[in-house]
């Protein structure tokens, strides 16, 4: 065994890398499957239901933003619900498997100075919202597929249909 490893170091390195990639591929597929109806997804929907008035018809999404400072990073997590006129934003607090929420706020379409809804197409959107003075006050990332990667990406949530409906509404806001 060790003799074989000594004779073929590059082959061993290749096998090691292949095993590593295979592990992450399997983990990604497993988490993606789980994310379609995960406990976290249900919890986010439950939080939005508790916060947004019942008469509102909204598109729910999970969004986040991470900033890196050297070796450390800081993340903000949100449950969001968008209607034709309003965006409900609920800051989430996540520790392990526990998801809590903080005071929510509502952004009215008319109060915005500018909407940057990111590059069209693809499965990720980087969104920036600006006030009437063109000052950025909220930025977030929305993904079709969110899988647990590390402590900064702690939830398995797959939201393909919601993602497309959400960005469609934001694009409409942008063009108005």
């Amino acid at each position: 065994m060790f003799d074989f490893m000594d004779k073929h170091p590059m082959l061993m390195l290749g096998l090691f890398l292949a095993a590593f990639l295979l592990y992450f591929l399997i983990k990604y597929l497993f988490d993606k499957h789980k994310g379609k109806n995960s406990e976290e997804r249900r919890r986010v929907l439950e939080i939005l239901k508790a916060v947004i008035p019942v008469e509102e018809s909204y598109v729910p999404v999970y969004a986040y933003w991470t900033e890196h400072y050297g070796k450390s990073s800081k993340s903000w997590y949100y449950a969001m619900g968008i209607t034709d006129e309003k965006l409900y934003v609920v800051p989430l607090h996540i520790a392990g498997k526990v998801i809590g929420y903080d005071k929510s706020f509502v952004i009215h379409k008319n109060s915005l100075g500018k909407v940057d809804s990111g590059k069209a197409g693809g499965s990720v959107r980087y969104v920036k919202l600006y006030d009437q003075n063109q000052k950025e006050f909220l930025k977030f990332e929305v993904n079709e597929v969110n899988t647990k990667m590390d402590k900064t990406m702690p939830l398995n949530i797959v939201q393909v249909e919601e993602f497309h409906a959400f960005v469609k509404k934001l694009d409409e806001w942008k063009s108005q």
Binding site: R43, H93, I94, A95, G96, V98, G100, Y101, D102
Partner: peptide
Amino acid sequence: KNPHEEFINYYMNGK
């Protein structure tokens, strides 16, 4: 024992 989780449970409607 899980101080952050308990904090969220106690103050932030955690579940």
